[in-house]
Design a protein around this nucleic acid. Structure first.
Length: 440
RNA sequence: GGAGGAGUGGCCGAGCGGUCGAAGGCGGCGGAUUUGAAAUCCGUUGUAGGGGCGACUCUACCGGGGGUUCGAAUCCCUCCUCCUCCGCCA
């Protein structure tokens, strides 16, 4: 969420910055400006009335005889004032609600270092790690490799849950488990993250805090108890959402909290299953386990001092990269252009792993710096050491990594002529020493 | 699901129609004492939003929302959350 004062006092800058990411609803921003002005006027007006009432009430309290004519007369006079205040408050609430609605639907402003551009074609390649593996046999994609080995089963997944699900079997299931253990171990022991195992069902307030709601409700799976479906319980706030990413529970850990500056930066890592409805992606990536409704991911989340956000983003990105490096998977890092960034991000790097069968790099981690955008939504603050008022934290997060896509990359990059797949050396201890996955 | 209890400042906790932003304690900060520390003593210490160049000042906030009243932390309604016991349950 943008700061109302900043946004209303710098409307032209905000319009220009949002235009960079393709947001061109100028009328909405103008509305924001005029509402902000009206808000101030009403506040001034209502507060003056309240001041008047407070003074009068104080005088009333000093009248000893509550039945005197003097008292009665004053009381009648104040009744009208009370009504006037009530009307002003009502208008103030209306304005506040509309402002809130606008602010919650405005994306973050791109950081000045974020390049221009409106689609992924405008992303900037920062660096490439490793080399494309070459194959002296006919290359297969992860579906052929995985199904061939009997470790991926899409047909049975469809029987259980429909399209865009996968069942992992045998060494595939173990590989998934090995990857998540490996990633958590690296981040906790080498990178200093505190491990968190959060709920995967969260309240709408958490979804609002990180920016998934209200604008992207269609991307989520929303839960209710059976009897609440009939009772339309969502109106009563009983509803829960399946997390689309561990970013939601991990970041919201510190909602409504004031951290000590000395404790910064705070770094959490956690694994969760992630659930996405993939609304609007019909027909895209329908093959295999690139885009599924349920996938596993290890997430990295950092809270830091506003002065260190930029540096923290580099640190976080490095942590995610180290996983790919240890797994010896060829990848590249791109900086997202303004139009390709997520709603809440101001600066983002994507890690894209090489998928030889698709002859392309695919996102396997997205590392973002949110500035105070999320922190303002969820009131996550810190208290500066040199006294002073609490200030908003900066938040960052990145996948470290998406486990399913890592598994896909391993199947494709490490495939052998005989259909088997070599297990990355770093993972072998987690696979009971297994060096090669062969058909069961 | 049933029956009770409770939500007050960074934390604990009093207050139960006006003098309450709210006693007291803890914690924090500043100072005194001390060679230093502990202990002790004194002072100070919420958040947000208006207005003012500023000293400053005003307004709101006692779980959320609504109501009663000239006036609500205090009374009423409602919702939420947490705790205890019973039931069910991995």
């Amino acid at each position: 969420m943008l700061d109302l004062r900043y946004a209303s006092e710098n409307l032209a800058d905000v319009k220009a910055a949002l235009a960079r990411r393709g947001f061109d609803d100028v009328a909405l921003l103008d509305r924001l400006g005029s509402l902000a002005e009206e808000r101030r006027e009403i506040i001034t007006q209502v507060e003056a009335l309240r001041q008047e009432r407070n003074a009068a009430s104080e005088a009333m309290a000093k009248v000893a005889d509550k039945k005197s004519e003097e008292f009665q007369a004053k009381r009648d006079e104040l009744r009208a004032l009370g009504d006037e205040i009530k009307a002003g408050e009502a208008r103030q609430a209306e304005v506040a609600e509309e402002l809130e609605g606008i602010l919650l639907n405005l994306p973050n402003l791109p950081h000045p270092e974020t390049p221009n551009g409106l689609s992924e074609d405008d992303n900037v390649e920062m660096r490439v790690w490793g080399q494309k593996p070459s194959f002296d046999f006919e290359m297969r994609d992860h579906v052929e490799v995985g199904v061939g080995l009997g470790i991926l089963d899409f047909e049975r997944a469809a029987k259980l849950s429909g399209s865009r699900f996968v069942v992992l079997m045998g060494a595939g299931a173990r590989l998934e488990r090995a990857l998540l253990q490996f990633m958590l171990d690296v981040h906790t022991t080498e990178h200093g993250y505190r491990e968190v195992w959060p709920p995967v069902l969260v309240k709408d307030s958490a979804m609002l805090g990180t920016g998934q709601l209200p604008k992207f409700a269609k991307d989520s799976f929303r839960m209710a108890k059976e009897e609440e479906w009939e009772a339309q319980a969502e109106a009563q706030g009983h509803d829960l959402y399946l997390v689309p990413t561990a970013e939601v529970p991990l970041t919201n850990l510190h909602a409504d909290e004031i951290l000590a500056e000395a404790d910064l930066p705070v770094a959490y890592t956690g694994y969760t299953a992630c659930f996405r409805s993939e609304a609007g992606s019909y027909g895209k990536d329908t093959r295999g386990m690139i885009r599924v409704h349920q996938f596993d991911k290890v997430e990295l989340v950092r809270f830091c001092h506003p002065d260190h956000g930029d540096r923290e983003l580099d640190i976080l990105t490095g942590h995610a990269e180290s996983i790919l490096q240890k797994l010896e998977l060829h990848y590249r890092v791109v900086q997202l252009c303004a139009g390709d960034m997520g709603f809440a991000a101001q600066k983002s790097y994507d890690l894209e792993v090489w998928l030889p069968a698709q002859d392309t790099y695919r996102e396997i981690s997205s590392c973002s710096w949110f500035g105070d955008f999320q922190a303002r939504r969820m009131k996550a603050r810190f208290r500066p050491e040199q006294k002073g008022k609490p200030r908003l934290l900066h938040t960052l997060n990145g996948s470290g990594l998406a486990i399913g896509r890592t598994l896909v990359a391993i199947l494709e990059q490490n495939q052998q002529a005989d259909g088997s797949v070599s297990v990355p050396k770093a993972l072998r201890p987690y696979m009971g020493g297994l060096e090669r996955i062969t058909a069961a």
